[in-house]
Nucleic acid binder design. Structure first.
Lengths: 197, 197
DNA sequence: CCGTATCCAATAAGATACTG
DNA sequence: CAGTATCTTATTGGATACGG
């Protein structure tokens, strides 16, 4: 609790799950956090060795925050807590979510059995951030980066893409291109865990 | 975070991991919590359906708090968070711990490889609370209850027992009785995860 | 863009006392 | 024993403004 117990701390760390981010990205993607609290949380995380400041190589040369190895090790637990918590009767999938949170839920919810034998590269575009997800041996491996050589691409706001992938919203509500047969199968790979009471 | 995010909430839920408890037990075992905060946390947990009030069957007929099924499902994640957090450079094993926390760390830290092929029943006495742990197929199954038919028994304060089992403190610092060869092997089954920095 | 400084408001917690 | 009521204090978070 001393490492992760204060308000916002877990959410900040989660945003660093797929690589370094800059201050204003974090501020924008963590709905409702204020600059001073974000600064404080980052410095606490830094002093606890869960996060470190890094400088991107030239020509970018900007300062970013990245999770340490140890910090990254707790990320799967955070993801599992998310899956558990989403079963709450009061969970609201319409709440605005960050792209990190959406991608993480894909990774957490994929059914190895349903993805059996499937191999595919799938790209996601959320505004100016993109991810490539590789399905392999029933797992979904994800990294941030350009969606080159993908069999299928989704583009839209995180919530909308999530609604299509997890909850069967119509493809027309976002932008889907590439192998549409794959798309139809892909959105069946994510069984939602049973709701409570 | 809305389900478990406030201060004390996780600690309260953890105390219910091995069965129902009464109010004053929780108050005594959660170091530093005050009665009003505990009452508030319990009622929040109840309204969120992680905990329910129950009445023990006669002749006890006392009121207790117990975790719901759903509440119990998050306990292994709490345990894993504990293992992760104990690697912190600032983790202090001398801090006073509850018997629940100690038992849970045994369950979490046992090495399946080292316990390979071992079968045993081991009892633990902490004041007036006792547990029986069964080693089987590399796992440690635990339940609260009388230590009947155990091959080995430990008795002492939670911290002291933990020091013996996890950190190789001398048997003489607590009370150990039964199969002493088993005892010597038992305390080798729990490799501590590597420290950070 | 990346924070820091300042201030104010809300709230949450601790201590204590008290009651069925 | 199992809480509730009350009070006081400490913390923290949100808003805003500002500077490198």
């Amino acid at each position: 609790m001393e490492l992760l117990g204060e308000r916002w701390t877990v959410l900040v760390l989660r945003e660093l799950a797929y690589g370094p981010r800059r201050f204003y990205e974090l501020k924008e993607d963590i709905a409702g956090i204020s600059a001073n609290v974000l600064a404080q949380r980052l410095s606490e995380l830094e002093s606890r060795k869960l996060v470190r400041r890094a400088k991107l190589p030239p020509p970018a040369s900007i300062q970013v925050y990245e999770a340490t190895e140890w910090g990254l090790e707790v990320v799967p637990l955070i993801a599992s807590l998310g899956r558990w918590a989403a079963r709450s009767p009061w969970h609201d999938p319409a709440r605005r979510r960050s792209h990190v949170s959406v991608i993480m839920s894909f990774q957490t919810l994929i059914s190895a059995a349903r993805a059996e034998g499937l191999r595919a590269r799938i790209g996601f575009h959320f505004g100016d951030v993109s991810y490539v997800a590789t399905i392999n041996h029933g797992r979904l491996d994800v990294e941030r980066g350009p969606t080159e050589d993908c069999d299928l691409e989704f583009r839209g706001a995180p919530n909308e893409v999530s609604a299509v992938v997890l909850r069967g919203a119509r493809f027309e509500t976002i932008e889907v291109k590439g192998d549409m047969e794959l798309a139809k199968r892909f959105v069946t790979l994510f069984p939602l865990p049973p709701k409570i009471g």
